[in-house]
């Protein structure tokens, strides 16, 4: 146990340092380069070139904050679903969250905007979130009838397919502009984040994450076995319901503000498991949040910088960055035995 404490400390320290570093770089680098010293001064109310200040405070800061919290949220959400399904390839969108959100975003864009009404940012956010929760609601209802994890996973896929099909149906009535908009939304992006949005997202994600952290103990018991958890006093069915709802909230919020960001939720838990020896949720959850934040910030920075001034799609970068990383780690480590 003492070994674990030491290792935990090292991992957390490294992650924290990395996070601060990448966060600063996100604020500093870009088509306009702002020296890091100035970045700090602008953040804390200092004066300087008004254009630079605006870039840092109103464009890059909200974007970085959203990227940070989204990364953390997705990593945690992915981890929760992997725990729930006892399946390491489950991700935050496996229960149809992104398809639900996309479907509602599509309604907004194709139908509403197509009719000539303007769609506000707030409406986009609201409707996307509603779509995500719609998918979650269907899954929860199904979970009362379907007791097997494996079958519930399949049900999640089916919900995704149905939503996807409905979306495609709607698209057939759409004009090109709407289709392009929807496609753009589907790629996921942190660009153009308003400060108010960033704050809203951060608060919601932080609140849900803290709540999940408080459930570390029962989640840990659940990981040791459903029957075991039941016998030590965990209300397993309630916990399972809670896990679905909480992870959906996390990924729903991210999707609402940034669209579906793929791969983070699957890859980051994998990376963290390799880094950490202490597998208790108590230690894993903070590590996941930090790693997800770092990973997403790096991806967003690269998406912005690689082909500047053109922005790559976020999901492309996360996939290209993440997939080889996972492969390397998988090949490199010792096989985990089932005992």
């Amino acid at each position: 146990m003492r070994e674990n404490s030491r290792r935990n400390f090292i991992v957390f320290l490294c992650l924290a340092v990395l996070l601060v570093l990448v966060f600063c770089l996100s604020l500093s680098l870009g088509s306009v380069s702002v020296p890091v010293r100035d970045v700090f001064s602008y953040l804390f109310g200092g004066e300087g070139n008004p254009q630079y200040v605006k870039i840092v405070r109103e464009i890059r800061l909200p974007r970085a904050v959203l990227a940070l919290f989204s990364g953390g949220a997705l990593a945690v959400s992915g981890y929760l679903l992997q725990t729930f399904f006892r399946n390491p390839i489950a991700g935050p969108f496996v229960l149809g969250i992104s398809s639900g959100a996309r479907f509602c975003a599509c309604i907004l864009m194709v139908i509403v905007a197509g009719q000539g009404y303007t769609v506000s940012n707030g409406q986009m956010v609201g409707w996307s979130f509603a779509g995500a929760m719609l998918a979650t609601g269907i899954i929860i209802l199904l979970s009362f009838r379907i007791k097997s994890m494996g079958i519930l996973l399949v049900a999640g896929f089916m919900v995704s397919y149905i939503m996807g099909a409905l979306t495609d149906f709607l698209i057939s009535f759409a004009d090109d502009a709407s289709i392009i908009n929807l496609h753009g939304w589907t790629q996921g992006s942190f660009s153009g984040t308003a400060p108010a949005d960033a704050l809203e997202a951060a608060v919601m994600i932080a609140a849900v994450s803290v709540f999940i952290f408080c459930l570390s103990k029962p989640i840990g018991a659940y990981q040791s076995g459903e029957r075991f958890a039941e016998t030590v006093g965990v209300h397993v069915h309630l916990l399972q319901l809670g896990i679905i709802v909480l992870s959906s909230l996390l990924s729903g919020v991210v999707t609402a503000f940034a669209g579906p960001v793929s791969f983070v939720g699957v890859a980051v838990p994998f990376i963290v498991r390799t880094l950490m020896r202490d597998r208790r949720p108590l230690a894993m959850l903070p590590a996941l949040f930090l790693t997800g934040a770092v990973f997403t910030l790096i991806s967003d920075l690269l998406a912005r910088m690689l082909l500047s001034p053109m922005e790559l799609s976020l999901s492309t970068v996360t996939s290209v960055l993440g997939a080889p990383l996972v492969l390397i780690m998988m090949v490199g480590r010792k096989k985990e035995r089932e005992i």
Binding site: M1, K217, G225, E226, R227, F228, V232, E336, E338
Partner: peptide, 20 residues
């Protein structure tokens, strides 16, 4: 049903029983 995927020492495993 006793499949454990995570590495654990004997003491850590037994400590899980103190949950209540």
């Amino acid at each position: 049903d006793r499949r454990q995927r995570d590495p654990k020492t004997v003491r850590e495993l037994v400590t899980e029983g103190r949950y209540p």
